[in-house]
Design a protein around this nucleic acid. Structure first.
Ligand code: MN
Ligand code: MN
Ligand code: ZN
Ligand code: ZN
Lengths: 139, 139
DNA sequence: TACAACAATGCAACTTTGTTGCAAAATATT
DNA sequence: AATATTTTGCAACAAAGTTGCATTGTTGTA
């Protein structure tokens, strides 16, 4: 996987640095979405806060991760699939945030339905975020 | 309209204060959604920042306004329709954020489609937020 | 491998945003 | 009008995010 990480960075024309390798591997390890704070914790102060901000920003721009809107002022980030590129994200899947455990899931198997908007409104991006109880917390 | 504002507050068993009247009337005047910062500006420093935070929180709890998640760490608030009550919101309409002018619309005429989630996932709330160009900015 | 060019990082300082406790003021209740 | 209850403003704080710049690390080339 370590080789994979480096390859991804190279593919997106990013120089290979410790911070980027570490943060990107965190995404692969956890599998789920992470907020800036999560990353700060999990990287256990290996990097400056500012570096994490800048790394996330770079990753979003390059199409490596995408943002997930939330109703609590804390944007989450998750890995993009292969289709995403520098200027163009194609993360048209549903996101699920568990009210219980707080985990944010990319529900890749469910895609966002197309909706018809009133005249004059042109959609560029559609985000469908569902909150509730996840399959781990469901007793 | 002034009478209306007071009536709404009373209906939700809130005491009638200057801050609440002003902030609630702002929502009626603008028509669209507002972030905390917008309100702070439009109320032109009439109230303490803390009062605005607390008022918004109260309004959400009482079912007077609802939150709209965004991908840029700035939750927006908009008026609920009549159906919403203290514990139970029913704002199942689509939201639209214009990338151009920044206005956030409640698209009341388009309701959020039901989606089928994987086994074990139980939806409590669904938010569909679309960004793009609004009908004013569409040339 | 060594060097130069370039990019990323850490640090400090700062701004913005949000939270909490408490006394003063406003509102509701009698 | 007097009292009980809520709300507000203030201050102090915590958390989150931004910016400039010197230092360090990375990359491509000699
Ligand atoms: Mn996703
Ligand atoms: Mn709405
Ligand atoms: Zn859960
Ligand atoms: Zn617009």
């Amino acid at each position: 996987m370590q080789a994979n990480i480096t390859e991804i960075l190279r593919k997106h024309q990013l120089s290979i640095t410790e911070a980027r390798k570490k943060i990107l591997s965190l995404f692969w390890e956890t599998g789920n979405a992470m907020a800036h704070g999560d990353i700060e914790q999990k990287s256990s102060a290996d990097f400056d806060r500012v570096t994490i901000y800048r790394t996330l920003q770079t990753f979003v721009e390059k199409g490596i991760i995408h943002t997930i809107p939330t109703a609590d002022n804390s944007v989450r980030y998750a890995l993009c699939k292969d289709e995403c590129a520098a200027g163009h994200h194609h993360d048209d899947h549903v996101h699920f945030i568990c009210d219980d455990c707080g985990i944010t899931y990319c529900i890749d198997e469910v895609s966002v339905p197309k909706v018809k908007l009133p005249k004059g409104f042109k959609a560029a991006q559609t985000d469908l975020v569902i909150s509730g109880t996840c399959n781990k917390c469901d007793l």
